[in-house]
Amino acid sequence: MNFWVIQGLNGLAFGSLLFILASGFSLIFGLMRIVNLSHGAYFMLGAYVGISAMAAGASFWTAILIGGVAIAVLGAVIERLILRRLTGQPLAQVLVTLGIAFIIADACVWIWTGDPRPVPMPRELAGAFRIHQLAFPIYRLFVIGVAFTLAAALWFLLERTRLGAMIRAGVDDLNMARAMGIRTSVLFPVVFCLGSALAGAGGVLAGPILSVYPGLDTDMLPLALVVVILGGVGSLLGAFIGSLIIGFIYSYGQALFPDLAYMILFLPMVLVLTLRPTGLFGRQAI
C-alpha cells in the first residue's frame, strides 16, 4: 500500500515537472507551429544557470527567477534573430532549433564540465512530510503545488484574458486571426518567451529532484514530445493530463520494471496514435 502511494506521489511530482516543460512546448507548437527541439536544452541550461547563481550567493528562489529570465532572454534573441527569418518554413525552423540544442548542450559541457551537479534544496523545504507511517519529501509536494498553481494560472491567462483569447484564436486558425487584426508579430515573441521562461525556471525547480547532468536535455525532450502527442496540440488540459499520465507510467515503471521503464512509454503512444491520432484533447491531428 505504502509503495503505491509513495510511487504515485513520485509520479505526480515527476509529472508536475514534465508539465512545466511541456506546457510551454505545447503552447509554442500550437500557436507558432514551431517544434522547438531546443526546449530540453533550455531546461538544462536554466538549471545550470540556477546552479551558478546559487554558487554566486543567490537564494534558491532568486536562482529560479534568474534561470527563467535568462532563458526567456535567450529565447527572445533566438526568436527575433533566427526563427522569424524562417517564418513559413516549419522544417527549416525545426532543424535550426535542433542545431541550437546541440550548441547549447555542448556549451554546457564546456562551461560546467561533464560531471553531474547536485542542486541544493531550499532549507525551508528540506525534510519529509509524515502521515501515519508514510514519509514523503516536502520539496516534492511543493513542486506538485507549483505545477497545479501554474496550470491554474495558465488556464486563467488563456481563458480569461484578452491575450489568452488572441493566443487561442491563433492556435485555432492563424490566418483568420491575422485577418481579424491580431498582431502575430507581437504575440509570437510573447508566447515564445513565456515558454522559454517556463523551461528555464522549470530546470532550476527540477534540480533538487533530477540533479543536472549532460544529457538531461535529451532525456526530457522526448518526454515532452510524448506528452504533446498524448495530450493533443496546443491544448493546456492535454499537456496537463498527458504529463501526469507519463509521470505515473514512468514512476511506476521505474519502480516495478527498472529495465523496461522506457519500453512502457511505447504503450501510451501506440494506444493514442492508433485510437485517437489527435491526442486526447487535441482538435486537430498533429
Binding site: L37, L225, P258, A261, Y262, T274
Partner: peptide, 24 residues
C-alpha cells in the same frame, strides 16, 4: 498517423525511447 511536423516528433520520440531501452 501524422504528417509533417507530427511525423518528425513521433519518429524522434520513438527513436529516443529505443535509446532509453538500450541504455537502461
Amino acid at each position: 498517423r501524422a504528417s509533417g511536423l507530427g511525423f518528425l516528433m513521433i519518429t524522434l520520440a520513438l527513436g529516443q525511447i529505443l535509446w532509453g531501452i538500450a541504455y537502461r
